[in-house]
Design a protein around this nucleic acid. Structure first.
Length: 885
RNA sequence: GGGCGGAUAGUUCAGCGGCAGAACACCUGCCUUACACGCAGGGGGUCACAGGUUCGAACCCUGUUUCGCCCACCA
């Protein structure tokens, strides 16, 4: 076995990461195989926006998926991690429009075809960029299967789904109030609107009765919509107003006459207790209008300007018209008062422009029947949410779902496959472009100008990417996928809709588990954003610390139910960890021979050998369970502690004498064998988190001769365990106490102390320490350590400390500061007396003894016994120092 | 209005029924031939508050305070 005993002193990620990624691609190790002899594990990646660049959220999300994929691969699954990108309708169109604006032109000047061509150019330019960035992270995606939501295959799936839903009457077209972004110039679905509380004004306006016998006062935040009023509504049981029902009033600023009607939607407690009804510009009013058969009078156009019906206000923007109307009302004496109020205002989730309720012809998905199946699938346990609490969020939304507006007045996207006949008005919906109207045969048909909501195609992602609507071996083998990993912010946009379409078209859930992870924020808990300037760019971090360090940091910081506050400093911590691991490996390699260590006698294994081997087994067992529970945070932290704490701080230090040959050839060989075994096991355990460095070390240790890539290494299983934890605890405690005593006595670190005495009675402890004396001696730099029974008198001129099994004294000669030592011992005495008193108090309660489990009671009794003997020893010590108690 | 999280060391967070933990930061010493991206030692906590359940509560239950998120409403 060829070992690389010449590792560089420092670990340098750049070179090795590039080298190994290229190697993995070369060997096709990420490529998924339909292999029925193996269990399948599949994930479809949440496709990032094609014009976007990789941010920390992606890095975190992808790291999580990669950890799962790499683990499952090693565990013998046939793994598919399917990557791709999303055309991101509005977002992408906006970006390209902005660049056109910078060039002094716009999409209308270009025309639809040329514009779409331009967007494709962008896609080609930037789509590749984010893929390259994902590769830098180390993603083990099957790049041969990379998909894009506007690919031909996926577009075919989109059309098929649209047509089928239309045939099932689950898609319909109609004139409704929708959310309209006048900047993006398109309809938005309800969830594409973000609401914010904003200060506004509440205008109280007089509506005089037609006959001049009185007036009714109505409050509104939007006086410009008065121009579109078609009624005033009051609550049917309102004592104050119900008598007015049927009275006709004059609409201010116009000469129109409208009726007072009654409707339950009015809250008699709010405002003045009556409401002006503007069906064309308010969703609630729209419903009232439908119930009462009222006209829909539009006064604002799609650009956000007042139209012809607005009379003198025509051409004004909404805000100008609001201002102007307010002035006019005041001058006409129709304005009672204006109050300040805060109300929530909707904004476009892509550009932030205030969203207007707008009456227009749109396409909708009838969501309720689809949602019902989605709810059932989760209730039946077909899909598990992790953490489980998100299930509630999902149910709440699905059970109150509203129809989904899917048409967008954009050019970039899947064009709606519907053709309207100019002759008979019939709409032909078809998977293939029709030549003629299916009803009258006229060739005078025109395709709908609109495209579909980008989430319509994302909703099909789990099966459209695997070749649906064709029956493919991939679908058969990898669908339903095993896991979906995403943030809670797109549960409604994406997760819920994938579930609905998956159940409807595949008749099976799209994934068995949904893991919802937290959001990444900056170190102050602020959302990262370009405008705040607090963005931590994953690529910068990779450049500075390496992809492995970034991945390890993200994994280790991840917890459930709390946002992750990230800072470069935290990533640096894990960069240090990489260096630690690297140097531990370097040390091991410096001490290993090329020849494999064979025929090691079990009797040659020391306590620490057995201990570290057992700890490795614990690590195997725990990590396997943690990964199964998707708890990568605990797994990463445990690995960190194992490597740094157990392996480096303890085992490697303890192994040094044996490796130097101080303990003989057999012990040296045994220790080498242990080192070999530890690294051979721990590297695969670390690999899912830090793939690059583990691959490099896999090769350096020579393991690649058997298994060329660590990616193909077998996931370790628990093999054996030695019952040595108690012994090791004694040993570690002895070392810690001696080191502490040295520090107390201000002995210089490099100076050897002549002698120490450990006084213990328990035969096991005596035996353990006796066996490990040379190790203790080396770790604590004490030349001579004697193990004696506790009855032996305490050595003079020494510092001492009591511990569970006895007492340890370090002879320091005349440098002993008696006064300081007395203070220290007294403090120790106080602490122990306190714990003894606490334990006694517990034991004195009869209920404790009778009700607590026996082992807890025994433990408590043990504490008292131990404490008492420690107290006795401490008193003795204090007396011998001449301290009176 | 409905729902969901969080409150533990100076800071960021683990722990979620049996003597309060880590990482940074801080203090003392150390270039001890794997690592100064390091080593050894140390200080630092009424586990937000008030009740309850329990032999026993940071942990379970009920309130309260407080920070944050989501949904609905907002004429």
């Amino acid at each position: 076995m060829k070992r690389n005993r010449d590792l560089a002193k420092g670990y340098t990620p750049e070179v090795l990461e590039e080298k190994w990624y290229a190697d993995w691609l070369d060997k096709g190790l990420f490529n998924a195989q339909v292999d029925k002899s193996k269990p399948a594990f599949s994930i479809v990646i949440p496709p990032p926006n094609v014009t976007g660049s990789l941010h920390m959220g992606h890095a975190f999300n992808n790291t999580f998926q990669d950890i799962m994929c790499r683990t499952r691969r090693m565990q013998g699954y046939s793994v598919l991690w399917l990557p791709g990108t999303d055309h991101a309708g509005i977002a992408t169109q906006n970006v390209v429009e902005k660049s056109l604006a910078a060039q002094g032109t716009n999409r209308h000047e270009l025309g639809r075809e040329a514009f779409v061509e331009k967007v494709w150019e962008w896609k080609k330019l930037y789509g590749e960029r984010i893929i390259t960035q994902m590769k830098k992270l180390g993603n083990s995606c099957d790049w041969q299967r990379e998909r894009f939501t506007l690919d031909e295959g996926l577009s075919r799936a989109v059309r098929k789904v649209f047509v089928e839903l239309y045939k099932k009457d689950l898609i319909y077209r109609g004139k409704y109030i929708i959310n309209w972004c006048s900047r993006c110039h398109t309809a938005l679905s309800d969830i594409e609107v973000d609401y914010d509380d904003k200060p506004g004004k509440f205008y109280y306006v007089r509506y005089p009765f037609e006959d001049g016998t009185g007036e009714i006062v109505v409050a509104t935040t939007r006086p410009e919509t008065i121009l579109g009023d078609v009624a005033i509504a009051v609550h049917p049981r309102s004592e104050q107003f119900s008598t007015l029902v049927g009275v006709r009033v004059r609409v201010p600023l116009t000469d129109r006459i409208i009726p007072i009607i009654e409707d339950n939607m009015v809250d008699p407690e709010f405002g003045t207790g009556c409401v002006k009804i503007t069906p064309a510009h308010d969703p609630n009013d729209f419903l009232v209008g439908q119930r009462h058969n009222l006209p829909q009078l539009q006064v604002i156009d799609g650009e956000g300007f007042m139209n012809e019906a607005a009379g003198k206000y025509k051409g004004m923007s909404i805000l100008e018209a609001r201002e102007e109307a307010s002035k006019d009302l005041e001058s006409q004496g129709l304005l009672v008062k204006v109050e300040e109020m805060t109300h929530s205002v909707g904004h476009c989730y892509r550009c932030g422009t205030t969203v207007e309720p707008y009456l227009s012809e749109q396409w909708f998905v009838r969501a309720k029947p689809l949602a019902e199946r989605g709810v059932k699938a989760v209730r039946d346990g077909k899909i598990h949410w992790i953490p489980e609490q998100w299930e509630k969020t999902y149910f709440q939304w699905m059970e109150n779902i509203r129809d989904w507006c899917i048409s967008r007045q954009l050019w970039w996207g899947h064009r709606i496959p519907a053709w309207t006949c100019a002759d008979c008005g019939h709409i032909t919906v078809s998977e293939t472009d029709p030549a003629a109207c299916e009803k009258c045969g006229s060739q005078n048909i025109a395709q709908d100008e609109d495209v579909l909501d980008t989430w319509f195609s994302s909703a099909l992602w789990p099966f459209s990417t695997m070749g649906w609507p064709d029956k493919t071996p991939e679908l058969d083998y990898f669908y339903p996928t095993s896991l979906m990993v995403t943030g809670f912010d797109i549960i409604f946009f994406w997760v819920a809709r994938m579930i609905m379409t998956g159940l409807e078209f595949m008749d099976a859930e799209p994934f068995k588990d949904v893991y919802i992870h937290s959001l990444i924020r900056d170190e102050h808990g602020q959302k990262m954003s370009k405008s705040k300037g607090n963005v931590i760019d994953p690529l910068d971090m990779i450049e500075k610390y390496g992809a492995d360090a970034l991945r390890m940091a993200l994994a280790a910081l991840s917890t459930q139910g709390r946002d992750i506050l990230l800072s470069p400093g935290k990533i640096e911590t894990y960069r240090f960890f990489m260096n630690k691991l690297w140097n531990a490996a370097r040390f091991a390699l410096m001490n290993l021979d090329d020849a494999p260590v064979e025929n090691v006698n079990l009797f040659d294994l020391s306590l620490q050998d057995k201990w570290i081997l057992s700890r490795v087994q614990d690590t195997v067992e725990q990590e396997t369970a943690q990964i199964d529970a998707y708890d990568v945070g605990s797994a990463a932290r445990m690995l960190y502690d194992f490597v740094w704490g157990d392996l480096c701080d303890w085992y490697l230090e303890m192994a040094k004498p044996a490796l130097k040959g101080d303990e003989g050839e057999d012990r040296k060989r045994a220790t080498q064998a242990v080192l070999d075994e530890v690294f051979k096991t721990i590297l695969p355990l670390l690999h899912p988190f830090i793939p690059f460095v583990t691959e490099e070390l896999w090769e350096a240790f020579g393991y690649s001769e058997e298994t060329p890539s660590i990616m193909n290494a077998f996931w370790p299983v628990v093999k054996y365990r030695f019952n040595v934890y108690d012994d090791m605890k004694d040993l570690q405690e002895a070392v810690r106490i001696l080191r502490n005593l040295r520090a107390e006595a201000h002995v210089a670190p490099q100076q050897w102390v002549n002698s120490a005495v450990i006084r213990v009675d328990k035969p096991e402890t005596v035996a353990t320490l006796q066996d490990s004396l040379s190790i203790v001696s080396m770790l604590c730099r004490v030349k001579q350590i004697d193990i004696l029974p506790t009855a032996t008198p305490r050595p003079g001129e020494s510092l001492s400390s009591v511990f569970a099994s006895g007492e340890i004294s370090l002879s320091v000669g005349d440098i002993l500061d008696i006064a300081a030592e007395a203070i220290r011992l007294k403090q120790e005495l106080v602490t122990i007396e306190k714990t003894v008193a606490a334990s006694r108090a517990r034991l004195d309660k009869p209920d404790f003894v009778s009700r607590a489990p026996q082992e807890v009671v025994d433990k408590e009794r043990g504490r008292v016994d131990e404490g008492l003997s420690q107290i006795a020893r401490l008193r003795e010590n204090l007396e011998s120092l001449g301290v009176k108690l």
